[in-house]
Design a protein around this nucleic acid. Structure first.
Lengths: 251, 251
DNA sequence: GCGACGCTTCGGCGCCGGCCGCAATGTGCG
DNA sequence: CGCACATTGCGGCCGGCGCCGAAGCGTCGC
């Protein structure tokens, strides 16, 4: 009598709401999004194993999430990397996940944010260094005239000597994999060092105890030896790096 | 190899996320929630007609939304009133609805928020005044010794005279409907005046141009004549009422 | 070039969930 | 007291969606 009757027309808001909610209403897709809350970019296969579904199933889910604007994707070689499309999306997912009636884990959000921060600082990407530390290494190399940013990356003559000094030997460029290659960093949005040199540097850093893995994930922690080494070799101030993360950090 | 394999255990966050998203993933339930964004409490039948589904269907949906903590319900007589459970829920729904990729209506949220604010200020509830204005009227009446808050509401002797003065005649108590009855206000969480006196006052306010309906909904706007009348009759400062809404208002 | 690997597409299967109509319940009103 | 109305519970139907396996394609690395 007194209310407005809109009939059964579906408004813009309604289709937008149901579309987004529908994407998140599936357990497998939700598991994907929650895993991606750590800020990393995952491959389709990793997510499939993580959620316990077949690769084909994961592929379909990822396509739908990308089409729905929840995820962003980037193809690197034979891998499909996906990440959350937007800090706003991450916030939304955290809000929804935190809206459980039992309210069982109030500090849950903090835990996630902490993990995300750690990953933004230093992690492995495939087999090389990434995160703020990885970008700083690439910046340090090019800042010292050791690495040229042409199309991709290329070590200078001084750079190859530096590599031999640090690693003891020059990494081979087995097959088609070049010594240096640039790889877009998902949290920094700037390139870090990949290729056999990047892999050898990462392995060396792990072997020497410069960095260590946190748990079973990709997150890395930089120890005192690492702070000394990065400072000596590339003039990188790890402490300042960590502070700068706190300034311009998370959303 | 390097990732953490969680198997296929569903974490707390995951079930919370899928549960909430699943509730919002249905078109009918989404239509309900979007309608409820105006801050009003709707009856099950109103929502059923609004969404174009059978009452039985609406009833099931509402039960699930209530069980999921999205809506809160209250039974009044043969009506089931529902409203959004929580300002946080309203915010979440607005965020999700606003997250459409086309980004077609940026000021949409503002429109909704504005409508909600207008409704919180003054509206009709059934056939009487509600919202902050309705509660203020009830407060003014009892503050002037015209209305007693016993079990429910009851007009005093001075109150009945006041009613006759204002309305010209005393509203009849047809059938079982009493002169005064208290009715819980959904936005203020405090009682406002219902019953035949409440209905007569509301009709009188509309007839006299004290208040006018906004569009076809229940929202009311208070005009200059209304501000004067409410001030003269009950010492209500409508402007201050509106300001207090801006202070303690929305989320 | 060749095998391995990651990813995608395509049918097909099975299940969950939304919808309705009908009957039952409880309330308001004359 | 009896009718009208709002709401609820119960089957039953049906469409949609998630899942997998098999086959195909492009890339990586020797």
């Amino acid at each position: 009598m007194c209310g407005a009757h809109d009939g059964r027309v579906a408004s813009d808001s309604q289709i937008a709401l149901t579309r987004l909610a529908g994407l998140l209403a599936d357990g497998t897709r939700a598991a994907f999004c929650l895993a991606l809350l750590d800020g990393r970019a995952w491959t389709a296969g990793e997510l499939a194993r993580h959620a316990g579904v077949a690769p084909s199933t994961a592929s379909e889910h990822l396509s739908r999430l990308v089409a729905g604007g929840v995820l962003a994707e980037e193809h690197q070689g034979r891998h499909r990397y996906v990440r959350l499309a937007d800090p706003a999306v991450a916030q939304l997912i955290e809000d929804m996940a935190a809206h459980g009636p039992p309210a069982n884990s109030p500090p849950g959000t903090l835990r996630v944010a902490g993990a995300r921060r750690a990953l933004a600082f230093a992690r492995t990407c495939y087999d090389h260094l990434a995160g703020r530390l990885g970008v700083a290494v690439a910046d340090g190399l090019s800042g010292h005239g050791l690495l040229e940013r042409r199309t991709g990356f290329a070590f200078t003559e001084a750079g190859t000597s530096w590599l031999e000094d640090v690693l003891g030997s020059l990494p081979g460029t087995t097959g088609r994999r070049p010594l240096a290659r640039q790889c877009l960093d998902w949290t920094e949005r700037r390139p870090h060092l990949a290729g056999t040199a990047g892999a050898a540097l990462c392995r060396h850093a792990l072997d020497q105890g410069w960095v260590a893995r946190i748990g079973s994930g990709r997150a890395l922690v930089v120890g005192p030896a690492g702070a000394e080494a990065f400072s000596r070799l590339l003039n990188i101030d790890v402490a300042a790096l960590r502070l700068s993360l706190d300034d311009g950090g998370g959303t």
